[in-house]
Design a binder for these strands. Structure first.
Length: 468
RNA sequence: GCCCCCAUCGUCUAGUGGCCUAGGACACCACCCUUUCAAGGUGGCGGCACGGGUUCGAAUCCCGUUGGGGGUGCCA
């Protein structure tokens, strides 16, 4: 009778949701889904000043965006670490009574002074055999046993730590409050956690946690330390230097599916020749044992490429819905000018041209502006050709009477182009800048058809006037 | 300083002793397509950090070197 695996996910309260945290959450979730296990969310709030209801809600929102649904039967929590404070202290006292911990009255300054004297770093076990009783200002320290501690890690195999390199660490502070390490282990035991999957940076702390598990009379969980995510300098992704907030990518128009898929390919790859796979394949194939051992660079460019793929996979209706939030307030056209029907017609042309959704407004703004946007570089590049004025003159008269259909409009320009022995690629340029204000954009004749005769004509006339 | 982890194209990876003349993806370049830009198609550039072993045979196993990273609190 083997119990269902329980995977814990415990983000640290930083105020935002780190993409690295998102990845370990995804690992835990994939495993829980495949094994029929449980995803346990714990809010590490022993320091309540860094925690808030908003933060907790933010976590749940971010998880749900990633597809980790808090209403699923496989989702448990959130648990709040602060609610277990009594158990933390109880466990510490038990350790003391068992002889696995002892009290020490040295101040941090005194510990440091002794360390300097002996030349050995850290605490030297000064109070190990002094038999001190609890008292104000006294800390409780764990009595690290002789020998070695072997951490069995699913990603890295067995990692051995010599116990004499681990100091007698503090369990209870001088003010009686429990340290995070202790709290963590007690909570894991309390919540019957069977698997701890987290970032590699926690590996050096693991032997301490494992010793605590054993001292408290339990077998440690299955550990798995996955490599950290790094920036181009190969340093751990940090809030200060790097764009690490999941919310930020979401706000810029990265699709959840793309983010999930990309995150999963950092340190792991699905079988086959494509990395673009649905979540169901991830659930089927993901194994901790297959996760890479070395840090992975979080490449925003590749993320955008994945996102482009996912954007193109969207149905027209899905694309419209995904784009909608980016077309409201803050868009580069006057409030009230947005026309849903116009965008709907233009949408298919936009869908293949976008990496992140936030690029959409700048691509379609000319539809909703009262006149063509002014871009001097674009103007100078295209309106200086010797045929620019003639193109505009020809199109002004053609546009006035042509049947309003992009094929006919194109034909009108082609007539001019052929008569002059030019290329359509050249002659469309002045027209494009006159109408859209830019040298690049969605297909021109289709855009003109959508824009309408009056608006187009007005813009061509304006451009002619400016040309003089 | 001490402890721990890591090392395949620029990047993310496949590879678990012979299928490797090392495969794919992103990026980059070229060509095709083409009304601009994309998308799509085809092709190209480009890598097993180094040195020793083990073996008939090593990207794969062992040792060392070098180089990266992480951890070293009465923080979480």
């Amino acid at each position: 009778m083997s119990a269902v695996p329980r995977y814990r996910f415990a983000p640290s309260p930083t105020g935002f949701f780190h993409v690295g945290g998102a990845r370990t959450a995804l690992y835990n979730w994939a495993l829980a889904q495949r094994t029929g296990g449980t995803f346990v969310l714990r809010i590490e709030d022993t320091d309540e000043s860094r925690n808030s209801p908003e933060w907790t809600q933010g976590i749940i929102d971010a998880l749900s965006w990633l597809g980790i649904d808090s209403s699923s039967p496989q989702f448990e929590g959130p648990y709040f670490q602060s609610e277990y404070a009594a158990q933390h202290v109880d466990a510490a006292m038990r350790l003391w009574r068992q002889g696995d911990a002892y009290w020490c009255d040295l101040t941090p300054e005194q510990v440091q002074a002794r360390s300097k004297e002996t030349g050995r770093p850290g605490y030297d076990g000064y109070s190990r055999d002094r038999g001190l009783e609890p008292g104000p200002g006294r800390v409780l320290r764990f009595r690290v046993p002789e020998g070695a501690t072997v951490v069995g890690d699913l990603v890295r195999g067995n990692v051995e730590f010599a116990n004499d390199t681990i100091e007698d660490f503090v369990l209870l502070r001088g003010n009686g409050t429990p340290m995070f390490l202790l709290a963590n282990v007690v909570d894991d035991i309390e919540m019957r956690i069977s698997h701890v999957v987290r970032a590699e940076e926690h590996l050096p702390n693991t032997p301490k946690q494992q010793m605590l598990w054993r001292a408290l009379g339990h077998e440690p969980p299955v550990w798995a330390h996955v490599p950290v995510l790094v920036n181009e300098q190969r340093k751990k992704l940090s809030k200060r230097r790097d764009k690490v907030a999941l919310e930020q990518y979401r706000a810029e128009g990265i699709l959840a599916d793309a983010m999930v898929n990309y995150l999963m390919t950092l340190g792991w790859a699905p079988a086959g020749d494509t990395e673009i796979v649905p979540w169901s394949r991830v659930v089927e194939e993901f194994r901790l044992e297959d996760v890479n051992h070395s840090p992975a660079f979080f490449d925003v460019k590749k993320l955008a490429a994945f996102n482009g793929d996912y954007v193109r996979m969207l149905t027209p209706g899905e694309f419209l819905a995904a784009a909608r939030p980016f077309l409201g307030p803050g868009a580069p056209w006057p409030a009230g000018n947005f026309d849903e029907a116009v965008f709907e017609r233009a949408a298919p042309m936009v869908q293949t041209r976008v990496g992140t959704l936030s690029e959409i407004p700048a691509m379609v703004d000319f539809f909703f502006l009262d006149s063509a946007p002014v871009d001097d570089d674009a103007w100078n590049k295209t309106m200086t050709s010797d045929f620019a004025a003639d193109v505009l003159a020809h199109m002004e008269s053609a546009l006035a009477s042509v049947e309003w259909d992009h094929e006919r409009i194109k034909r009108a320009l082609e007539e001019f182009t052929e008569a002059r022995g030019l290329k359509l690629g050249k002659t469309q340029a002045p027209l494009r800048v006159a109408v859209t204000g830019r040298t690049v954009g969605p297909p021109l004749f289709e855009s003109i058809e959508i824009l309408g005769r009056d608006a187009t004509l007005a813009r061509v006339r304006t451009a002619r006037a400016r040309l003089g």
